[in-house]
Design a protein around this nucleic acid. Sequence first.
DNA 1: GAGATTATGTCAGTACTATTGACGTAATTT
DNA 2: AAATTACGTCAATAGTACTGACATAATCTC
Lengths: 162, 162
Amino acid sequence: MSVEDGIDFAIIELFFFAYRDFTSDPDQMLADYGFGRAHHRVLHFVNRRPGLTVAELLDVLKITKQSLARVLKQLIDTDHVVQLQGPRDRRQRELYPTAKGRALALALARPQSRRIRAALEDSGATERTLVERFLEAMVNPELRAQIDVGSAKMSGKSHGEH
Amino acid sequence: MSVEDGIDFAIIELFFFAYRDFTSDPDQMLADYGFGRAHHRVLHFVNRRPGLTVAELLDVLKITKQSLARVLKQLIDTDHVVQLQGPRDRRQRELYPTAKGRALALALARPQSRRIRAALEDSGATERTLVERFLEAMVNPELRAQIDVGSAKMSGKSHGEH
DNA sequence: GAGATTATGTCAGTACTATTGACGTAATTT
DNA sequence: AAATTACGTCAATAGTACTGACATAATCTC
């Protein structure tokens, strides 16, 4: 059962290898832009949830605002992300990807998506759902609400260029 | 199908959340020792493959020897790992966990294993195998040989105290 | 309206993990 | 004897993260 001392070393190790390789393709591409994995994460979530505020982004990423600052500033300076004053609350900054930002987010996601497709290649919808359910169950329960499982909720925002 | 632009954003995002939370429990415990995630990885593989050489460890972790040096030195200084001169080739250093090292490796793996068990709780052997196969398929093909899938191969080495 | 709170930004210092490049030593191979 | 290998170490740098402190503008509360 690949278990010693009652510990599931097999999946623990597989998870490490799988995640490392999963992030390796975008990591290499990011180097060309002078970006790192942190930029990828920010860009990913801004692209996925256009119009989210800085506070919301911090809550999703679970990092401090000081950590976000550098990365977000670089993404703004390089015209990948724009900030708009919040319509309801003018203290807030809503974050949107630019066309350039969306293109990069897509380019970074492409090899990851390809890898997933290859890993599921002989699998049907059942297997796919099972993997999704497993991954979701690995997330801390109190955070599962943050996850978009189905098609992305575009939050009814404009989604256009800014 | 939770796919936009042909990109599997759902699993990409789930994988990020899942891995982050998966590593969070040992990360917290490691802080008590003044250790980081790098120490966990080294200790894990030394524990899993007792007697592996420094070069083999570098090859598994895919880091440079300079990166390994600090971490390994600390694990040796704190009596979690010992080095033995290679029996065949005296230039080599075989790495073994001490009892203390094995205890820590086990303690760090416990919450991770618990999380996996919980995630698979209503699943049978089929689902487990499927998740294992998915994770393995996510790993770069040329590296799959390094992975111990079944019960750990203890490499025929003593496995005792050193 | 005054004061408290909130959202965001920024400065300073520190820690951890990783890198490249260079050099040294002992052991093995050719 | 010379080249190569396994390992260790020194130095400099980068990327991501942290805590703590302070500033500003906007909103909320009394």
